[in-house]
Amino acid sequence: MTANGLYEEIIIAGFGGQGIMLTGKLLAQTAMQAGKEVTYMPSYGAEVRGGTANCMVIISETKIACPVVAKPDSLIVMNKASLNKFGPRLKNHGLLIMNSSLIDTEPQLDETIEIISIPADELAVELGSQKSANMAALGAYLQKRAYLTADQAGQALPNVLAKRYHKTLPLNIKALQCGAEFTKSCCKV
């Protein structure tokens, strides 16, 4: 956050196949539809296949200068390797959303960092498909940061999801809401 209002740098990371790029695109699309400035940068090429996948998203009220995220305000990690790689880069007082279904250790991070540990895979399986674990994690993030809602993300989803997957829209929207509910129930203030 700056004097000009919202300025949030986010890294989303996991392994290839967890829908990391889609999650980043959805976040960027949702913010754009809400009238914000956005940039989205995927890791690309050889790095994507099999190994880790990650993307950087910046959301701002004003024009974004540099689209490169060195130290994110928020980090969404879907597996342990990503936590190890990007965890140390998180800003103090930052937010960590971690998929506890695939991360069995306590992250060793600065004590000012807020952690939401969400069993995203388990929640998604309960809803019908493990594939929407990414949506649960994003829902949890949106609920916490509260500059956009899980409902807004649900509305933006058809614009980033390829048409051949549109039959999965209801499930993914449910997963977004489920993630948001999880944050609500675990982070009562």
Partner: peptide, 10 residues
């Protein structure tokens, strides 16, 4: 460059 080619913006 690769960055501009790959990055998404409105």
């Amino acid at each position: 460059d690769g960055f501009l080619g790959q990055m998404m913006e409105p």
